[in-house]
Every structure is written in C-alpha cells, then in structure tokens.
Simulated scan of single mutants.
Amino acid sequence: MLLWALIVGASFPVVGLLSDGLPSLLLTAMRFAIAALAMLPMAWRAGPAVPNLEGGLLYAVMGLCLAGFFGVMFWAAHRVSAVSMSALFVSMPLLAYGLGRVFGVETRAHRLLAILVLGAVGALALALAQSGGDLAKLQFGWGEMAFFLGCIASALYPVLSKWGLGRGILSPDAAVRTFWSLAAGGVLIGLVGFIAEPVAAMGRMRLGDVLLVAYLGVFSSGATFWLMQRATGALTPGAVTAYSYLVPFVSMLVLFAMRPDVIGWQWLPGSLLVITAIALLFRGAAGQPRPQSRSTGSVDDERVACAGATLPEKHR
C-alpha cells in the first residue's frame, strides 16, 4: 500500500499534462479499458476465471462503485472547491471502517479508529496548506453532498471485495478480481460518457495524450487496483484505505520538487500527523503474529494479520 500511495500521489501531475477540453468520463473509460487489458495476462494465468452469476453480480456492483466515484468526482470538480473535496475525501477510511463493521469484515478496533482519525486530521491539514489556509472555501452544498456519496461508493469497494472473499464469491486471485471490477467499471463509465459527453471530442487527442492515458491506465489504475486487491486479502478495509492519507503527502513532495519556492512551515503539522498515523499502522502490523500460509497458487496466499486486520476463522 506504500507503493500504491506513491503511484497515486505521483499521478496527479501527470493528469494535469493532458490536453484541455477532452471528455473526462470517456477518458476514464479508456483508462479503465487499458488497465483491464494490462491485467488480462495475469488473470489468464490464474486459470478459469469467468465468474458465476453470483460473482458476476458482485463484480458489477463493485464496478458501479468505481463508476459512481469517478463519475461524481469529474462532475463535482467544476462545482466544488478543492478544499471541500479534500475534506470529504479524507473521510473515506472512516467510511470504509464503518461499512466494514456493517458487513462484518471489520472487528471493533479502537486503536485503528484512532489512527484513522489522526490520519484524517493530518491529510486535511495538508489540503488546507495547499489552499493557503482559506477556510472560506470549505463549504457543504448539493455538489458536496454528491461528492460525499461518491466517497461512500469508493469506500464500499474494498468492503465488498473483503466480503466477497470471505464467502468464496470472488476469485482468490487479486489479478482476476482487479480485471473484472475494472472491466465492469469501465463499461459503466463508458455508457455514461457516451450519453453525457461529446464523443467527437475524443478525436482531438494527440499522441502525447494517448501515451499519458496508457500510462495512467497501466500504472495508476491497473497496478494500483491490483495492489489494493492484494492488500485486501490481508488487511481490513479501514486499514487498506488508511494509506490514502499518504496520497496528499506524496503530492506535496512532487510539488516541492517542481516548485521549491512553496516550501514552508504550514506543511509541517499535517505531514507529521500523516507520518505518525502510517507509522502506527506499521507498528500494529509488526506486533501481530504471522499466520501459517497455505500454498494454493494464489497471489493472496501471503497473508499477514496487521493493523487490526483479522481474517474470519474459516480462512485462518
């Protein structure tokens, strides 16, 4: 998940290099299609991977979660301030923890809950530092409500993955789960894009745009969702999503590398809180016993109970 945070945090400057005026939803559908194709060889090696009806329905719901979050994010980008979006986004790990409790894939863990709150405060402090500390931009209206619903959908994704794994509905292979959820999400985002956006605008894409979308598809979507699915086999949803607090920290480091003149003391409090939260997660991981692993040929076999992540009894 550290590698996940590094890739995601470093991808934001890449997105800014895309040409203006391109349809966002259709670009995302293209990105997801490339990501799914990148996962196809790994999923193919896992053997027969076509899900049954129950698994197909769950993958469709997981894809709907992805489509819902990205669709609302692009819609809200022009209606909601960056500070408000950041404040709502940092609630995602807490939402994942709460939804995990509802679905029975999270145990009551006061320590993990405290770490999530600490990380949320730190990530919010980084967002305020980036905006110059302008609290007036922190609002909550219909646009913010829509984005918050998108955050709930995103938080539900690892919860459904963990729930489906625990009941044997989803494939035990992380690449297979990544492929089907990305494929379903890409189809749903593409359908909305064809309805809501001008398809002809995709013709304005330059070779550089195609290469950037390919990079984002393979690394920022394919690799990151695969890493998340791998982590889901060992961690609870709250612990997995807690690493999203590192994303603004990584983006801050990229900003410092590009613009050293913006370095200031205002970045220090949030950075320290985020680093402390992640260090506490690692300390919890180190303090947990390493279970006996079974060789089943799955990439999720290397499971370590950490950060309050307790596997159901039948999977130990």
Results as ranks from 00 to 15, higher is better:
L273F: 01
I278W: 08
E302P: 03
R290A: 10
G297N: 03
S293F: 08
A309T: 06
G270D: 03
Q292C: 11
S271V: 00
E313V: 05
F282A: 04
G264K: 13
L281I: 07
V299S: 08
E313T: 04
W265M: 02
S295H: 09
P289E: 07
R283D: 13
A279P: 04
D301G: 15
W267G: 10
A305W: 03
V299H: 10
G308D: 01
E302S: 14
E302I: 06
A285W: 10
A305D: 02
V274P: 06
P289K: 08
L268F: 10
T296V: 08
A286H: 14
T296A: 08
L268A: 00
L281K: 00
L280K: 08
A277D: 05
S293P: 05
T310P: 02
I275K: 01
P312I: 10
R294D: 11
P289A: 14
P269H: 02
W265A: 10
T310D: 11
A307L: 05
W267F: 14
Q292P: 02
I275M: 13
F282C: 11
S293K: 04
A307S: 01
A307N: 05
A305S: 09
F282M: 04
S271K: 07
L273D: 07
T276F: 11
P312W: 04
V299T: 12
D300V: 11
C306P: 14
P312T: 04
A286I: 10
L280Q: 10
Q266Y: 14
R303L: 14
L268Y: 00
L272M: 04
W267I: 06
R294N: 07
T296C: 10
R294I: 15
G284D: 05
R303K: 09
Q266S: 14
R290C: 07
A286D: 00
G308E: 07
Q266T: 03
S298N: 12
L268T: 02
L272C: 02
L311P: 05
G297P: 04
G287T: 10
A277R: 03
S271I: 02
G297H: 05
G308M: 00
G284E: 15
V299N: 12
R290N: 06
Q266F: 12
S271G: 02
S293M: 05
C306A: 15
D300T: 13
R294L: 13
G284Q: 06
V299M: 13
L273T: 00
R283E: 11
S298C: 13
A309L: 06
P291Y: 01
L311F: 02
I278R: 01
R303E: 11
G264N: 07
C306S: 15
A286R: 11
L280N: 02
P312Y: 15
Q288P: 09
V299P: 09
S298P: 09
T296D: 14
E313A: 02
D301L: 06
T296L: 15
S293Q: 09
L281A: 06
R290Y: 13
G264F: 12
V274K: 01
D300H: 14
A286S: 08
P289F: 14
P291E: 13
R283M: 13
G264A: 15
T310L: 10
C306K: 12
A286F: 13
I278P: 02
V299I: 07
I278T: 01
T296G: 01
P269R: 03
A285P: 06
T310G: 10
A309M: 05
G308C: 00
A305I: 06
G297E: 05
